Simulated scan of single mutants.
Amino acid sequence: MAEFDISTDFDHLPVIGLAEEYQPSEVHSTHSHRRAQLLYASSGVMSVTVSSANYTIPPQRALWIPANVPHEVSCRGHVSLRTLYFNDELAARVEQESFIVEVSDFLKALILELVRLGTTNSYGKRSQLITELLLGELISMPPAPCTVPLPEDFRLRRVCQHILEDPSNKLTLDDLAAIAGMGRRTFSRLFKVQTGVGVAAWWRQVRLMEALSMLSSGERVTTVALAVGYESPSAFTSVFQKTFGMSPSEYRSSEVIQHTQQ
């Protein structure tokens, strides 16, 4: 496992900000950081795998990753990455597990300003105040439904990989059990024990994660619905609205507008 270190030139700073651009399909294989990280894309969608979960991160959300936690990052399209790295003292005030949060306009502004200030080799009173506001906002924001838990059992992981690679496939429960090399009942029971949800609910979340990526890229709702395995746009819209509190077309419009404003 590789460790991506931030330059030691900035070790004295409580918060380090980094802005980078990544190309479509670019992958950062499993690595970790010496500091806790707030991973945010001002545009584009990332897929991040931590040991126990897979996260989809569109621009309305950010992912907290504690220090020294291995993770892999995949870019679904062009990604404008804005990352903050926190020293141990600041990180101790936040959860010690990975979690994903909604990014309000206020939180976004704080992230972008700290990124701008983050590698100026100074950390004054204004930076301190912004950091305090950001940590308070980060802790108080609600968790976002963009996560699928991953099982520990390697046989179940094999099944999950099949679904993650193609959320629209038509494999039956018997097919999935066969891939795992288990009986249907054993497979269903163990899957729920290790992920906390049934196979159908887990698969639905994967489909929605893929839909977020496609909608963020400007794909039409009908195209997305069929591509992720729904029989009709109306069925897809119903599930999407219930999960995210907005219709797919509303989400798509907000993403397209945000991208053109970058």
Rank of each mutant, 00 (worst) to 15 (best):
Cys160Lys: 04
Arg207Gly: 00
Gly181His: 09
Ser213Gly: 15
Arg204Tyr: 07
Pro151Phe: 07
Phe191Arg: 00
Thr186Tyr: 07
Leu164Phe: 12
Ser213Val: 06
Leu164Arg: 13
Arg204Gly: 01
Gly196Val: 13
Trp202Gly: 01
Leu173Met: 14
Val197Gly: 00
Cys160Glu: 04
Arg185Leu: 13
Ala211Arg: 01
Arg189Leu: 14
Gly181Met: 12
Val197Trp: 00
His162Thr: 09
Trp203Tyr: 00
Ala180Leu: 11
Phe154Pro: 12
Thr147His: 01
Cys146Lys: 04
Phe154Ile: 15
Arg158Pro: 06
Thr195Gln: 03
Thr172Trp: 07
Met209Cys: 07
Arg155Trp: 14
Ser213His: 04
Val148Pro: 00
Gln161Lys: 14
Arg204Lys: 12
Leu150Cys: 03
Gln194Pro: 10
Gly181Asp: 09
Gln194His: 11
Lys192Asn: 05
Asp166Leu: 11
Glu165Ser: 13
Leu156Thr: 00
Thr172Lys: 09
Ser188Asn: 06
Ile163Tyr: 02
Pro149Cys: 04
Leu190Thr: 06
Arg158Ala: 11
Phe187Val: 11
Val199Cys: 05
Gly181Trp: 13
Gln205Arg: 15
Leu176Ile: 06
Leu176Asp: 02
Leu156Trp: 00
Ser168Leu: 09
Asp174Ile: 14
Ile179Ala: 00
Asp175His: 14
Glu165Leu: 13
Ser213Asp: 06
Gly181Lys: 10
Arg207Glu: 03
Ile179Val: 15
His162Asp: 05
Lys170Trp: 10
Gly183Asp: 15
Asp153Phe: 12
Pro149Thr: 06
Gly183Glu: 15
Gly183Ser: 09
Gln161Pro: 01
Asp166Val: 13
Cys146Pro: 05
Ser168Arg: 08
Ala178Arg: 14
Gly198Cys: 08
Ala178Phe: 08
Trp203Met: 01
Ala201Ile: 12
Leu176Cys: 01
Gly183Thr: 12
Thr195Tyr: 06
Arg157Leu: 12
Arg184Thr: 13
Val197Cys: 04
Ala211His: 00
Glu165Tyr: 06
Thr172His: 05
Ala211Tyr: 05
Arg158Phe: 06
Gly198His: 04
Val159Trp: 00
Glu210Ala: 13
Leu190Phe: 05
Ala177Lys: 02
Ala178Met: 12
Asp166Gln: 14
Met209Ala: 02
Cys146Ile: 09
Thr172Gly: 05
